[in-house]
Simulated scan of single mutants.
Amino acid sequence: MRSAFGTTFDVDGIYLNTPSIGVPPRPVVDAVSEAVGAWGRAESSPPQFDEAVDTARASFARFVGVSPSSVVLGSAVSGLLGLVAASLPAGTRVLTAEREFTSVTFPFAGAGHEVIEVPLEDLPERTVSADVVAVSVVASADGALVDLEALRSEVGPDTLVVLDATQSLGWLPADLSWADVVVAGGYKWLLSPRGASWMAVSDRLAERLVPHQSGWYAGGWHAIYGLPLRLHPDARRFDLSPAWLAHVGAATALPWLESLDAAAVHDHGVGLANRLRAGLDLPPAESAIVALRHEGAADRLAAAGIRAALRGGAARLGFHLHNTDADVDAVLEALA
């Protein structure tokens, strides 16, 4: 059990794998457990989950800086971006970063669009040749940050900007409201169950999207049987029916994360990451994710009982709310 930021985490051992799966605080676990118990006792009914869905949607909207009416529900980043990719003209030129997470690139490539990879640092200046720029705010493989200010200043007025904030929301304060798409899965730094994902869409993009995957939830309770087509007038018309239990957890996790001092959360994670970098003679960075290419690093960490991930040939570690200086010391000892 660990105490941090006014709550507790049932973390046993050293867990540095938040970039893969976030560890929820105890109140999130309790909320989901209570909902599962009610389901098992036949005490659940579909309408009772509407409040949790609305709460999580509104909280996500505030993280991004948009209205809840601009937020689409989904279950995974790739599915939500598939909606975008399928609504674009054939042959759309999509610019992305090298080694970008494939849930960002595959939906566009699978739809037959031309996807062009460039080094992350070169991406802003190359946007002039693209119809769409699709990139992660923080790279999954190594924690590198895209230069949002440069991207915003360089991108043309007709180019759509798609940002995957899965590896940034929850620890990196940033203005994302200007992008045409901000999508994120909730099960990493937002400390929610897998199955809750959201996508904020700009008005100009929403006009172009085709609600080809919308079901009854996109129309609401009055639209569950029969034609004609009748969908919500805002971005909810693109909703997928939510994974209810996942949104129960998200409705607890996201508002709690919102209530924290965003600067303190950022400084905590990045501070620990930089303490590790300093101990390994690496330059400081502005990321809570550290990719270590030291020989045998992944095996040494595993042997020491430290949970991390192997990504792109590097041991990937992420520092979030429950982590401490002692965790950094343990990594340094394991790699000594």
Rank of each mutant, 00 (worst) to 15 (best):
A314H: 06
G112H: 13
S67M: 07
L16R: 00
A56R: 04
G269S: 09
R126A: 15
L260M: 01
P157C: 05
V210C: 09
G185T: 06
V183Q: 00
A150F: 04
R307M: 07
T92R: 02
G279I: 01
A196I: 09
D234T: 11
G6K: 08
V53S: 08
L231T: 02
L257C: 07
D239H: 13
V115N: 08
D10F: 01
V146T: 14
W39I: 04
H294V: 13
S197N: 12
A141D: 11
A86I: 06
V11Y: 06
I116H: 09
E295Q: 12
W256R: 15
G65S: 12
H212M: 06
A52C: 08
V290G: 11
H268M: 10
G195K: 12
T96S: 09
R277V: 04
S78R: 14
V77R: 01
G74M: 10
P242W: 09
A330N: 01
E207W: 03
G269R: 01
H268C: 09
S33C: 08
R237D: 03
E51S: 12
A200D: 09
A273Q: 02
L95H: 03
L276A: 07
A35D: 00
S136P: 06
S45G: 05
T96R: 00
S45W: 12
R26N: 11
S67L: 13
E100Y: 10
T96M: 02
T102Q: 09
D299Q: 13
P47L: 07
A196C: 13
Q213H: 10
A298H: 15
P119V: 07
V29H: 04
F60G: 02
V71L: 09
P124C: 05
A4I: 11
A97Q: 05
D12P: 00
G313E: 00
D175G: 03
G305Y: 05
D299A: 15
R230V: 14
S103I: 01
R204D: 10
P193I: 05
M199T: 03
A97L: 08
P46Q: 12
G112L: 11
L120S: 06
I14Y: 03
W39D: 07
P284V: 12
D325I: 08
V146G: 03
E207V: 04
V128E: 13
R277I: 08
A243K: 11
A141C: 00
I14V: 15
D281T: 12
V32M: 14
V132F: 00
V71F: 07
T7S: 13
A288Y: 03
A97M: 04
A165G: 10
A109F: 05
I14H: 14
G13C: 04
A61C: 01
L321I: 10
R99A: 14
G82W: 03
V135L: 04
R194Q: 11
G226V: 13
L123P: 07
V104D: 02
A302T: 14
K188C: 08
L95C: 03
A35E: 00
D267A: 15
